[in-house]
Each structure stands twice: as C-alpha cells, then as structure tokens.
Simulated assay, not measured.
Amino acid sequence: MSHTAHIPSHRKPRQRASKTALRAGVAGGFLSTIAVAGAAGPAQAEPVTQTIEMPTIASGFSAAAAASAEATQQLALDMEKQADQDAAAQKAAKTAKKAHAEAVRKDEAKKKAEAAAKAKAEEEAKERAERASRSTERTTLSASTGTSGSSSSGSSASAPSSSSNVSGSAASIVAFAKAQVGDAYVSGGTGPNAWDCSGLVQAAYRTAGIDLPRVSQAQSTYGTQVSLDNLQPGDILYWGGAGSAYHVAIYVGGGQFVGAQNSSTGTVQRSMDYDRPTGAVRVL
C-alpha cells in the first residue's frame, strides 16, 4: 500500500475527534444550562416546599393535642378515683366510729343492767331476811297461844289485850298480819309481797280457815258489829260506814292495828290514835 493511500485513513479519525469535541461542547453547554436552571430552581420553588411541609406540622400538632387530651382525661379519671377512695375511707371511718359508740352504749347498758340486777338481788335477800324474821316472830307468837289470859277476857280500848295473850285462830290472824309489816301497798294486791287493805285482811283470815269477802265494803259487815271500846285481837277495823267502808285493817291488841295503808307507807303497824277507825266487826 502506498504512503498516500494511508492519508485519508489518517485524517478520518481527526474529523471524528472534532465531531466528538463538538458534541462534547454542545452537551457541556446543555448540561451547564441545566445546572444554571437547577441553581435558579429552589428560589422559585420555596413556597411550594413550605406548602408541602404544612401537613406534616399540622399532623404533629394534632398528635400532640390528642396526647394532651388523653393525659387530661387520664388525670380526671385518677382524680375521680382518688375522690371515690377518699369518700369510701370517710364512710368507713364514720361506720367504725358509730360501731364504737354503739359498743360503748351496749357496754354501759350491760353494766347498768348488772348493777340493777345486783341491787335487786340484794333487796330480795334483805326482804327474805325480813320475812324470815317475821316468820320467827309468828312462830314465837303461835307458841304462846296456850297461855291463859283471864285478865284479857274483858279487855277494852282503855285496857287493850296484849297480842302475847292471843290464842287460837286470832293468834294465827295477828301473827300473819304482823309478818307482812313492811310489804308494799298495791291497789288490788293480794300478796305475797304486796297488798291492798282488804287483800291483807282476807289473806290473814284465810290462815285461820275463814274465807272473807274480797272488798272492804263487804268485810265491814261480815260478822258482828262491836264497840271500839270492846275490841279483841283479830277483830276487823273499818273506816267509813258499815257496808260502805273505804278501808279496813286488823286489830292486833295493845291499842294497835296492822293494815296496808297506802303506796307511801305500805303495810304498817300503828296506834289506833294515828287514825281512829269508824267501827269494827268480830268474825271469830
């Protein structure tokens, strides 16, 4: 191959290189233009960028608000729960205080009841002792019923018979009446520890086997009317008219009587001068 024959082949690459350079220049200019446009772009797109970021801020604010609301609700629930607990504690304290007061009241009532029972027992024991003493007196009086009393056969109120000279049924009646001295007076009472006037007279005569009427009006006419100057132990004394008497008692000798007088004095033994009777009847 000749030397000249290789020249075209040698130049052709130069032309290619020139084109390549041209193309590179065009491409570089284009890219430069794009770079310039890109550099100018952010300044023009800044409002768009801010607009795009707003939903993100609003979303974060909404989440924070929701969290705050939830925290507030939880705080309200906690406060309500604490209030319920405080109310329950106060109620429990009041209940405990009330229960304590009730226990104290019951304890005091129990102590009072025990004291009352003790006092009643002591009173009953005292009463039994008194009744035993009266029974002893009755026994002593009954033992003396065999003693003669010739001087007492014509006794009067000015020289009354002594109860120690009483015999037979009269002694039993007098002894029973005296044994009840100190008992209470209760309207309608028939014993054994409380009497009214006619209930005591009826019970005294029952010890002698004599059944008297229950009321004082009938008792004041049961038997023979006798003068107050010619009384014998066991005679029935009455106050008021015969058949309309309002009070009765038993003459026990020595110018004295035993009767269930009233609620203030109870059953007593008194002188006839204390309350002079209207009349008397003899049943024996």
Rank of each mutant, 00 (worst) to 15 (best):
Q44H: 12
A45R: 08
A45Y: 01
P47L: 00
V48I: 12
I52F: 11
E53G: 00
E53H: 02
M54F: 14
M54P: 03
M54R: 13
T56K: 09
I57M: 11
A58T: 11
S59D: 12
G60E: 10
G60P: 03
G60I: 11
F61P: 01
S62H: 12
S62A: 13
A63K: 00
A63H: 02
A64T: 02
A65D: 07
A67V: 04
A67T: 05
S68Q: 12
S68T: 08
A71R: 00
A71N: 04
T72M: 01
T72S: 14
Q73P: 03
Q73D: 08
Q73H: 10
Q73A: 14
Q74Y: 03
Q74K: 08
Q74G: 08
Q74F: 07
Q74H: 07
L77R: 06
L77D: 12
K81Y: 14
Q82W: 10
D84F: 02
Q85G: 11
D86E: 13
A88K: 03
Q90I: 10
A92F: 08
K94F: 13
T95H: 05
T95A: 13
T95D: 13
A96C: 02
A96Q: 02
K97A: 14
K98C: 00
A99C: 00
A101C: 01
E102V: 00
A103N: 06
A103M: 00
R105I: 02
A109W: 04
A109Y: 09
K112N: 08
K112S: 09
A113N: 07
E114I: 05
E114Q: 11
A116R: 06
A117E: 01
K118A: 15
K118V: 12
A119E: 09
E122V: 07
E124L: 14
A125M: 05
A125N: 05
A125F: 08
K126V: 03
E127A: 13
A129E: 10
E130Q: 15
R131T: 02
A132R: 03
A132D: 11
S133L: 12
R134F: 13
R134K: 14
R134S: 15
R134L: 10
